Computed example of a mutant assay.
Amino acid sequence: MKQDEIIKLGISIGDLNGIGSEIVLKTFDDSRMLDFCTPVIFANSKIINFLKKHYNLGLNFQGIDSADKAIDGKINVVNVWKENVNINFGEEDNEIGTYAFKSLEAATEALKKDHIDVLVTAPINKHTIQSDQFNFPGHTDYLAKELDGESLMLMITDDLKVGLLTDHVALKDISEVITPDLIEKKIGIISRTLKQDFRVEKPKIAVLGINPHSGDNGVIGKEDEEILKPTIQKIKDRGELVFGPYSADSFFGTKNYKNFDAVIASYHDQGLIPFKTLSFGRGVNFTAGLNKVRTSPDHGTAFEIAGKNEANINSFKEAVFKALEIYKARQEYMRLTENPLKKQGRKL
């Protein structure tokens, strides 16, 4: 993308029975958003028109056959399918799940072809989207496969970034999944993304322990002593600023996270419960480690309020702005690293 071109922001519509379509359309009902990006929604014009009327919105959009036909200054809707779709807000529906996948698949293909610059995904229902084509715990694993990357789920706000060693893994399997290779790989991903996507020159990273009190020197499990500690030391010996393992129960309450550029939790709830407690409604899910930028809001389909015109758009809007910021930072990083002389006197 040339520097003077506006960023084309692709949006997969998510589960149509949830709040995804509401937060997407309400975000771009504010025409000022078109000053920042060109939205390209992967869905169907008939559906968008129905939703527009349902939520009593005044936005105007244009239907297009493919993302490369998107026009700046307009809300573009790629007609991924032509048939009518019956929406029943708040209900789990396998047929609706197939349309969530069709939208995601088309958006991902457009991303790979550079017809869009970034992707923001509206929430899916992880049960109804499952099929022979989508057999993944969620967006992150699917995109890692399609974009040939080593992904890491990174939850972000302006002052807090929490990554995960393991994401959608059953609790009983955590200790078997966490290996020295996995730790090194995930810390490597988060270190690179802090440099290229968040302009942190020398990342300082904290690692949370696997067991309560990080195992209390082996009294409460040996994984921290035998796996985490030696691997962290190995990485530190290479000159990386990686510290831990820290006891997870007090780490956030004492605001120790403010001393680091990012925190890596050992498993899903260990990281996401404090993250969402501290930042719910402002947080963004960013898939680090891919060659493309993808973000999403920090919440799910919220079936209980779907269709009731009650959804809060803040997290989705933050996901849009974070995608744009990360894309620009990455483009700048690539320009500077390709032209080392330009780096003199500049902080990344």
Rank of each mutant, 00 (worst) to 15 (best):
F36V: 03
A265G: 15
V162C: 01
K74C: 10
V169C: 05
A106E: 11
F260W: 05
K69P: 03
N79T: 10
S191N: 14
T254E: 15
G58W: 07
K102E: 13
T166Y: 04
S12Q: 04
D65F: 04
K347I: 12
G218Y: 12
E95R: 15
S66M: 10
Y327D: 06
D65M: 06
D298M: 09
R282S: 15
F251H: 09
R330V: 00
M33Q: 12
P212V: 09
E83M: 13
R346E: 07
K202W: 01
E338F: 06
K52P: 03
Y99L: 14
E184N: 07
P340G: 06
N49R: 14
G283M: 10
I124D: 01
Y246C: 11
A206N: 06
F101A: 04
A144E: 11
K126C: 02
E150F: 06
S247I: 01
V177L: 06
Q130R: 00
D148S: 15
Y55I: 13
T128R: 05
V320I: 13
T166N: 03
Y246H: 11
Q331W: 00
A170F: 01
N60T: 14
K102N: 14
D269F: 08
Q62Y: 09
S175W: 01
I87P: 01
G283Q: 12
D237H: 00
N135T: 00
P230T: 10
S175K: 15
V162Y: 01
K236L: 05
L272F: 08
G20Q: 04
I183R: 03
T166I: 07
E105Q: 10
